[in-house]
Design a protein around this nucleic acid. Structure first.
Lengths: 109, 109
DNA sequence: CTAACATTATATTGTAAGATAATATGTCTG
DNA sequence: CAGACATATTATCTTACAATATAATGTTAG
C-alpha cells in the first residue's frame, strides 16, 4: 500500500501526469507486445514483424510512438534498425505486468 | 526480465488484451489519482471530491468507468456510497507505479 | 539503379474526454 | 408520508484525439 502522505495534491498530479503519459503508450495491444518482445532481446523491425504478425507500416508507426515517447532506443546496423527498451521504469512495469497477467499462479500464498 | 518463452503469440495477445484493458483505465490522470486515494482508504464521493478537487459529475463519470471495468467495489452507507479498490492486480500495479514515479530515490543501488 | 528495409504522410473512422443538464436515491423533518 | 435537501448517477452533446489502412517517400547495400 503506497504511502502518499508526503505528497500534496499538486505533486500527486504531476507524478500522475508522468505516469499516465507512459500508461497511455502501454495501453495498446500491439505496443505492449512490442515492448514485451523488446524486453527480452534487441530486435529489428523485420524480426518483430515476423514474431507478432503486424504489417510493416503499422509496426513502424507504433515503433514511432515508442521512440517519440522515449520508451525505446534504436541502433542502426546496415539495413537493419535494432530496437530495445530504453527506460528502466518501463522495464520494471513490464516485469510487474508479466507477473500479474502472464504468470500461471496469480499468487495468494 | 520477463520470460515469456512459454507463451505462444495467441496466448500473449490474450494476456496483452487483459492488461491493456486495465491500462487504458489507468491511463487517465483523474482516474489514476482516484485509485491512488482509494488504495489508501475506502472513501465516499464527497471525500474524493474534496481531496482531488474534481466536480461531482465528472468524478461520478470516472467512478462509473472504474466500476464497469471492475477496478473498484462499492458499499452504500446511508446517503454515502463508499468506494474501494476491488482488484488485487490493480493494487499491485498501483504499488509499482508509486515506487517508480513517486519515490524520491528512483533506485540505482 | 534496383531491391530490401524502414519511416512518414494522408485520409477516414472510431472512440474517449469534458461540460452541462436532468434524474435518481436516500435522509430527515414536520 | 409528503416535501425539501444532500448525495450520487446518468444522459446528452460537442470536441478532440487515437487508431487503422493505404500510399508515398526515404535509406542503405550490392
Amino acid at each position: 500500500m503506497p504511502d502518499t502522505a508526503h505528497l500534496d495534491i499538486n505533486q500527486m498530479r504531476e507524478r500522475a501526469g508522468e505516469a499516465t503519459g507512459v500508461l497511455r503508450v502501454l495501453a495498446h495491444e500491439d505496443r505492449l507486445l512490442l515492448l514485451c518482445q523488446l524486453s527480452q532481446a534487441e530486435l529489428c523491425v523485420s524480426d518483430l514483424e515476423q514474431q507478432l504478425d503486424i504489417r510493416q507500416p503499422s509496426l513502424s508507426q507504433q515503433l514511432g510512438v515508442l521512440r517519440r515517447e522515449g520508451l525505446v532506443a534504436t541502433r542502426r546496423e546496415g539495413k537493419h534498425i535494432y530496437y530495445r527498451v530504453g527506460d528502466d521504469r518501463v522495464l520494471a512495469l513490464l516485469q510487474t505486468l508479466y507477473e500479474l497477467y502472464c504468470q500461471p499462479h496469480e499468487g495468494t500464498s
